[in-house]
Nucleic acid binder design. Structure first.
Lengths: 346, 346
DNA sequence: TTGTAAGCGTTATCAA
DNA sequence: TTGATAACGCTTACAA
């Protein structure tokens, strides 16, 4: 059932292989008449060009790849969504791969993509990725960094303004009447620093003194049960020291959601006793009880932009002449019941 | 920065291209001595074979593809997880694609995979897929059907025992003391029939009369808000007719989760007034309030099995001699708080 | 055990 | 406007 080839078409038409090739590529050196004849037969025979022959000759594949740590992560899969749209619109094929946050796997994948002569790569590097290695890859094939942009590689980068997200979230908690705001950080997470700094700036802007005891760091990769226990203990302890009008800013999705469950379990009323807001791109926020206010990252937009920047790089002959840009997109606040405003009387 | 080629290696070693090729493929017609020399230089020069040259010649790619409707769907992305494991273990490259539940996109994708001379395909067809088309594809390249196996294609199929899942879930609700059990079905969903039948059989087995009013069908693709409204109305109405000991079986994740939110909003106590169980593969079930009991589909196992069956097909020369198998895996019950047993006194 | 040469399907160069 | 030919990198008869 193999496909028909150029050669076969040529024989059927009684013209040369090269003429058929040129006709199908709409070359100016072929007559309209011939082109029409060729296209008709090609269509009729269901001719589909062999990618290997083509790529072997041209060295290009018209394919780009997106590497993210986990496909199953809702935020990251939304990046894919955006990338898909943009790639489709620009007639590029797109493949998705996951590195599972593993530097070794990532390395293999990148090599095998280069083997496949992929035209370009969008990557959200795994946390422990080696910038030297990324730079080396960047020499061989254009890459664009997305989301995790704190790697020293000379290329376009697309990220989220995490400081801004935390700033806005904190301001919203304050606006809803809270002055004592607990922050839950995921242990060893890259975004922690920026988000904490956004939190601090928001306090500052509202003349609320910063208290370092209000910032806690939790291992979010342990089992659900263990995490819930740890959180319960911490929340209990912290609530002792927080006099009133309490807010909670969850900087990691799992932590926020678990905290919500723990609060419910402790019989603490959200939002009346404690207001909660978290970073999250899942629709599940809507279905929580109470529904969870979130800072949403513009993941689809990021994916789309990533592809556009990448194609720009691919099409640009003198890559070293292009100066790298860093784009940071503002997150969006999705306000729901978990941060309802306190009655003015309080 | 192009890669070094066989020809270059040959020149450096002063031997012929074919000898180098054979040496690297560990052919028996090459002396150990030469092999060692060749391998050493190849390694030293970082030789990586050009896939196009290779595939152009051999017609194979050592790559298989998985097509699912949505990458972002947790259940489906777990299938990928399993497929990944098995493909890796068998030294196959794997690519993931999503059809977005769109027959047109699916068709394009399948064609372009065949263009790429992919060795085999695992597919969970979009709902409106045309079996005739799938059969045609199956003539060109081996395919394995996964999850959505109700298509008339002569090949291996891996599915979940949905009837069994609904049966077990219903039995569990009954065992927890419920006799009036409401069923939420997603409109137009393929699994509805099997799951409803499992529900009915469980009732029968427990001598509970079946009442068709207890089965409702809801459009789960409308907006969250609309769906919540519709659900609220339905639940209110149905609860009127349900005397006591109420259970709720959600056959679609979104519906179940939204129902949980609606129940909370109505001030109905879960699990004491209404016990809830749903089909779901997300970890969010754990974090719901109350935590949600679920029927979990063995998605990872399915993915793994799918790849194994596919490789079997690929390696089998006379495909038409192989008789197709249908494997249905049993789902697993994950029991949490939303179905806690009623106190015996009731 | 090694080498020669043909060919996979395509495009590009150059000549007709 | 068309065609012959070489070349991309690799494998594989077949010859040496």
């Amino acid at each position: 059932m193999a496909n028909i080839t150029l050669k076969q078409l040529a024989k059927m038409l009684g013209i040369s292989v090269s003429s058929v090739s040129k006709a199908l590529n709409d070359s100016h050196e072929i007559s309209e008449e011939t082109k029409i004849k060729v296209r008709k037969l090609a269509k009729q025979e269901g001719y589909r060009p062999n990618m290997f022959g083509k790529s072997l000759k041209t060295g290009r594949t018209n394919t780009v790849a997106v590497i993210i740590p986990y496909l199953a992560n809702p935020f990251q899969s939304q990046i894919l969504e955006g990338a898909h749209q943009a790639a489709y619109a620009n007639d590029y094929k797109l493949i998705f791969i996951q590195s599972r946050e593993d530097q070794e796997i990532e390395r293999d994948l990148l090599h095998s993509l280069i083997d496949q002569r992929i035209d370009g790569i969008i990557i959200s590097p795994s946390a422990n990725s080696d910038p030297t290695f990324l730079r080396a890859i960047n020499e061989e094939v254009p890459i664009v960094l997305i989301d995790r942009i704190d790697f020293d590689v000379e290329t376009h980068k697309i990220g989220v303004d995490n400081e801004r997200g935390a700033f806005d979230a904190t301001e919203h908690l304050i606006a809803s009447g809270r002055r004592d705001i607990l922050v839950l950080n995921g242990k060893g997470l890259g975004v922690t620093q920026k988000r904490t700094s956004g939190y601090q700036k928001a306090l500052l802007a509202n003349y609320i003194p910063f208290r370092s005891e209000y910032i806690v760091e939790i291992d979010y990769q342990q089992s659900k049960q263990e995490m819930a226990n740890e959180l319960r203990q911490i929340i209990n302890e912290k609530l002792q020291m927080m006099p009133d009008k309490i807010g909670l800013l969850g900087n990691t999705d799992v932590l926020t959601v678990t905290a919500l469950a723990v609060l419910a379990d402790l019989g603490i009323d959200v939002p009346n006793q404690v207001a909660v807001i978290g970073f999250s791109n899942t629709e599940a926020a809507e279905a929580m009880n109470p529904s969870l206010s979130t800072v949403v990252q513009p993941a689809i937009e990021m994916g789309r932009l990533g592809i556009e920047k990448l194609i720009e790089l691919i099409k640009c002959k003198n890559r070293n002449q292009l100066n790298p840009t860093i784009t940071t997109l503002a997150p969006i606040m999705a306000l729901r019941k978990s941060t309802k405003v306190l009655p003015a009387s309080s």
